[in-house]
Design a protein around this nucleic acid. Structure first.
Length: 253
DNA sequence: ATGGCAATAGAGTATTGA
């Protein structure tokens, strides 16, 4: 079964892209970030008509996350018990015997910003919660927009991005500490082309020049990683008119 | 070196993203 994560940068604008993409392949579970919709605005009917169950947690203008699944969705949590946060960045649920945490990690803006401190604290809270979830669920996937490029090979120009936001050592250490819980980066379990990215700046022909970053990830518990047969990034939606700046990342589990 | 693009809120321009 295919599991995917996609920062859609406004589900209102990107709903046609999402429905088109879902119609082109069999995807069992989808985690969405940056829906930017309050819950009463969420396009539930359209997504259910496409054959999915859906749960979501949104707010006006910013953030917002959702989980879609072909199967029934249960045990929904919309808040990290270790990190109360008015920003709607998390949703977790269980489907097909798999626990999925969908996360939209704060961007951080700059290393000097209060938002950077918030990002690191948020990630520490996520680590605590994920550890707890891992103790309860053998088959767990932590996926979403991490706003972290874990290694230099995940960056089109590592020198230009050295110590910049999304690449700084504390952010990368926070990412590794998630892996250290016993999670594997699904994408790196398989051979991948050089220059594989999941986000490209809208400006300066970023996509056309492949000036991107790999910041969207699917992390799998050991039991799920063992079962994972393939993983990749689908660049096709990024080529369409009016695309999200992120591409969907997928893993077959 | 800087800004460049896009979405949102809301009515000119500011904020945020990554």
């Amino acid at each position: 079964m295919r599991l995917a994560t996609w920062n859609v940068n406004s589900l209102k604008v990107r709903l046609p892209h999402l429905l088109d993409w879902l119609g082109r392949q069999e995807v069992g579970i989808v985690a969405l970030q940056e829906t930017k919709l309050e819950d009463d605005q969420f396009p539930r009917a359209e997504i259910e008509a496409a054959g999915y169950h859906v749960v979501f947690s949104g707010q006006k203008t910013y953030n917002g996350v959702a989980l879609l699944a072909k199967s029934e969705i249960g045990q929904v949590l919309r808040e990290n018990p270790h990190f109360p946060d008015p920003q709607k960045r998390l949703i977790a649920a269980t489907m097909d015997g798999i626990r999925v945490i969908c996360a939209y990690v704060p961007n951080g803006q700059t290393l000097e910003s209060d938002k950077y401190a918030y990002k690191l604290a948020w990630l520490e809270g996520l680590r605590h919660w994920a550890a707890e979830e891992l103790r309860q669920h053998e088959f767990l996937a932590l996926c979403g927009d991490f706003n972290i490029a874990p290694e230099d090979r995940d960056v089109h120009d590592p020198k230009a991005w050295a110590d910049a936001i999304l690449c700084s050592p504390p952010e990368r250490a926070a990412f590794r500490s998630l892996l250290d819980l016993g999670l594997a980066d699904a994408f790196r379990r398989f051979a991948q082309p050089e220059g594989s990215f999941s986000w490209w700046d809208y400006r300066m022909l970023g996509f056309q020049k492949n000036k991107g970053l790999r910041i969207d990830h699917i992390l799998l518990s050991t039991a799920l990683a063992t079962r994972c047969t393939a993983a990749g990034i689908d660049r096709a939606p990024r080529k369409q008119p009016r695309p999200s700046d992120h591409a969907p990342v997928w893993a077959d589990i």
